Simulated scan of single mutants.
Amino acid sequence: MTRVMIVDDHSIVREGIRILLEKFPDIMVVADADNGRAALDVAAKAAPGVVVMDTSMPGMNGIEATQRLSVECPSARVLILSMHKDKRFVAQAFRAGARGYLLKDCTSAELVHAVRSVAAGEIYVCSGIIGVVIDDYIKRIPDSLHQGEAALTPREREVLQLIAEGNNAKNIAFLLKINVKTVDTHRQQIMKKLKLHSVAELTKFAIREGFTSLDN
């Protein structure tokens, strides 16, 4: 029996995937969450074998959540289900530890096949992005990510996303359970590493590099 958790910030999407997957006797949906941060807490209790994960979500995006899950819940294999086919998103997902990547315009049959494949320990890549994966990994096209972004710590990436989503220092401190002074220190370090000088520049960078999106 494959235990599945669904992570997406749209309840109708979570419900639709649940209804679809639960038609199959070898798949059980054991939990869901509406953002990456909640997914970390839920996964620790639900012990899913496969996590169907969106990429663009408020609070903590799917890429960050995937990276954290690979450390905190290594038995959970992440299948990214996203509308993004850009190389940046695909490459970040697999570097974060994802075991599969599927576009949201896939058929229901392909989603079920992808879940089963990932549960079996296979890497699943949908046909819509296979060219992207080949370019980025087999042909070894140089990484296009900003060098400073690669140097950010996991905490700094969390703070960057929350800043870009319009949270002030007090809100970020509450969400991350740290003090405001620590948030300010993280912000200063992020700006120094990225060589950026304003919240507006940080926001543009975060959107461009896939930390958050204008849709959130």
Rank of each mutant, 00 (worst) to 15 (best):
L102N: 02
D143T: 08
I134A: 14
L102K: 01
S117G: 13
R116P: 02
A98T: 05
L102V: 02
I138H: 11
G121N: 09
E122H: 12
N167Q: 11
L162V: 00
I129D: 02
R155P: 13
L152F: 07
V133W: 02
L152M: 07
I134K: 14
N168F: 00
A164Q: 06
S108E: 14
A120H: 06
D105Q: 09
L152N: 06
I123A: 05
A109M: 10
L102D: 04
I134V: 14
S144R: 12
V132N: 03
N167W: 11
E149P: 12
R99M: 07
L152S: 06
V112I: 07
I130Q: 15
A169R: 00
V125F: 08
I123H: 07
V133F: 03
E110R: 03
A114D: 00
S127I: 15
R140Q: 13
T153N: 06
S127D: 15
D135H: 09
A109P: 09
D136P: 11
V132A: 05
G166S: 02
A93P: 00
D143C: 09
H113M: 15
Y137I: 13
I134H: 14
Y101N: 04
F94L: 06
G100Y: 02
I138D: 11
V115F: 03
D136S: 13
G100S: 03
L102C: 03
A96R: 06
I134D: 14
Y101K: 04
K104F: 05
L160C: 05
V125C: 09
K139G: 12
S144L: 12
H146S: 11
V112Q: 05
Q161S: 04
L162H: 00
S127F: 14
I141H: 14
K170V: 12
Q161M: 03
P154L: 08
L103A: 06
L145Q: 15
Y137A: 13
A109W: 10
L160H: 03
G100K: 02
P154K: 06
K170Y: 10
T107D: 10
R140M: 12
V132R: 05
G148S: 09
Y101V: 05
C106W: 01
G148F: 10
A93S: 00
R95C: 12
S108T: 13
K170R: 14
G128W: 07
V133A: 01
N168L: 00
D136A: 13
Q147W: 15
L102I: 01
S117F: 12
E158F: 09
V112N: 03
S127L: 15
T107M: 10
S127C: 15
A98E: 04
S144W: 11
S127R: 15
Q161L: 01
I163L: 08
I138R: 10
N167K: 12
A151W: 11
C126F: 09
V133N: 00
G128T: 08
I163N: 03
T153I: 07
G148V: 08
A164C: 07
A96G: 07
K104E: 07
